[in-house]
Write a protein that binds this DNA or RNA. Structure first.
Lengths: 199, 199
DNA sequence: TTGCGAAAATGAGTATGACTCATTATTTAT
DNA sequence: ATAAATAATGAGTCATACTCATTTTCGCAA
């Protein structure tokens, strides 16, 4: 699947993107998030264009199809969440434990449930897993540290942890898990991850 | 949310549903499943009508909106899966263990991934959790039996088990987990569910 | 500053597909 | 057989995703 948006220049950090183009792209994304959050993903592209203060053709120049636009909105949102979590990990430094980390990931994604659910409702792929992949560096470190400390079973692969965490986040999103319930689910997950059960 | 389809008679098992209506409803559902599986959920209602050999108005009589139709297709499919699993449990009698049961639920839902994913892709709510709720009787029995036997922690509520299992099924569907990976995920889940860890 | 080529924006127009409804056909009960 | 009720029909309406010829804006160099 090709990364949507930005028709010109396929590569990484090509220059020569006109200022107005960048500005409009940003406005459109912002407008789209607001409009979709309010009216659901079935809101018309015209509405988005109007809200962003551009003509409809401009929207389609940046995001050739409506799914592309929706996808971009989700990506943008998840990116921000990821950044937020990443910052938290940085700030906490070596102290942040794996459990704490998972708790935060779930909390952060659950906080934006309104928008995300609204989008998912009307057919957007909200792939938490894909987003989590961008946290892999942090996850790798935390997991290895936990395994060295003996608080997590040694045969657990990062991929597996990501899959489980993604599944729980997804569940929390679609089924609107409450904060205590999320905590409980994590506890259950971790008691299965621990090498020695104490109960 | 009201059960979609069947506009006349809201109650349980009212009679007085004309034979042709029942026949057409079935054809439409069957046709819809085939068409959506092949072309994705964005296939036109006209295509479904054509495939079912009815006029487009008939489709809309039975399923007032397109989401209604999609939802009905999913319900129908999940219902069949549930029935299948239920039958398995019956046949195995008291021998079927909880782990075995979960394995089967996941296998059965994964088998229909093609259709379900195709639908989910274009915005249908595939709520595995809702479907699982219909298995509650079986689940309650299996869980209690397991708890009495001491193979599962005593404080685990049926609701929690359903949530976890649903989350895993959902993950298996959206991320196309392989058979061994599904097994591994269940193992991890169960080691967290066990009262005494042995490893 | 001004001129120019390239990139971007515009928005009326097109195509498609969801949904309606007046009319016609079928079913069921008497 | 007949009538009343229910269902099926499908041409037409309307909303909206998407196109493209034209106009505007940008960025750069002389």
């Amino acid at each position: 699947m090709a990364r949507s948006g930005v028709p010109p220049s396929g590569g990484g950090g090509d220059k020569a993107v006109r200022a107005d183009a960048r500005r409009n792209r940003a406005s459109i994304l912002e407008a789209a998030e607001a409009v979709f959050a309010e009216q659901g993903a079935s809101a018309s592209t015209e509405a988005v264009a109007a809200h962003a203060g551009v003509a409809i053709g401009t929207v389609f120049r940046h995001f050739p199809t409506k799914p592309d636009l929706l996808q971009a909105v989700v990506m943008n949102l998840l990116d921000r969440l990821i950044t937020e979590v990443d910052a938290m990990v940085e700030n906490q430094g070596a102290v942040t434990a794996l459990f704490e980390f998972c708790t935060r990931v779930m909390a952060v994604s659950a906080r934006n449930r309104a928008v995300l659910a609204r989008l998912a409702e009307t057919g957007v792929q909200v792939r938490v897993g894909d987003a989590l992949t961008r946290l892999r560096p942090a996850i790798d470190v935390l997991l290895e540290r936990a395994q060295k400390a003996g608080t997590v079973r040694g045969d657990l692969l990062p991929t597996e942890l990501v899959a489980l965490l993604a599944a729980l986040c997804q569940g929390a999103l679609t089924d609107a898990w409450s904060e205590p319930f999320r905590q409980r689910m994590l506890t259950l997950l971790f008691d299965g991850i621990r090498p020695t059960a104490r109960r």
